[in-house]
Amino acid sequence: MLVQMYNVSKSYDNGVRALNDVTLKIERGEFVFLMGHSGAGKSTFIKLLMREELPTRGQIFVASRSVLRMKKAEIPQLRRNIGVIFQDFKLLENKTVWENVAFAMQVVGATSQQIKARVEETINMVGLSGRESSFPSQLSGGEQQRVGIARAIVNRPLIVIADEPTGNLDADTAWEIMELMSEINRKGTTIIMATHAHEIVRRMHKRVICLDKGCVVSDQQGVSIA
């Protein structure tokens, strides 16, 4: 089991209860959609897995390690097992495509040879060969998201968390991104993807966890959302 959550609740200082008694498990290699309206608790769910936030109550395990009991110095190690993809790409504007991807490997102390080989391979995989020297501002939205995906997977994480990765893209580009995500999943990486895109969820036939007001209201495999 890769992710385990037991009775997890999260309340913020302003009184907002973002998650309420959530219990779920995600297996290694699964592709899971996280659905729900704005404020349903999707972002909090992701932040708890990344240990950006701590739950008010409950237990969370990622790769059999308690996220709660983790010391501050151990957080970087947790995050090296998780790749994150953002809706707004969050690329470094002053770095090239190659530098944006290599950056994720540099911070974990990879050697130059490892970086060179892996970055090249990953850039090829996401279909950005030839654009290595471009800056993010010179790329289309879809291309920028591909850089974001390359950065998320270059360290070969156990899990990729994608927070609305197609939210800023047109339908065709969004579908290209989803095909890329499927390919990453096929290679064994667990994917947790928060999204509003019903059409994508319907066509992908994967596990869908629906959140509403912080509670899991449905958790079904291969559903087609109307």
Partner: peptide, 17 residues
């Protein structure tokens, strides 16, 4: 700050940042 945030999320230690 975005750069620092991303560094944190990809697993950089504080010393490294």
């Amino acid at each position: 700050r975005k750069e620092i945030y991303i560094m944190k999320l990809v697993g950089a230690t504080n010393r490294f940042i």
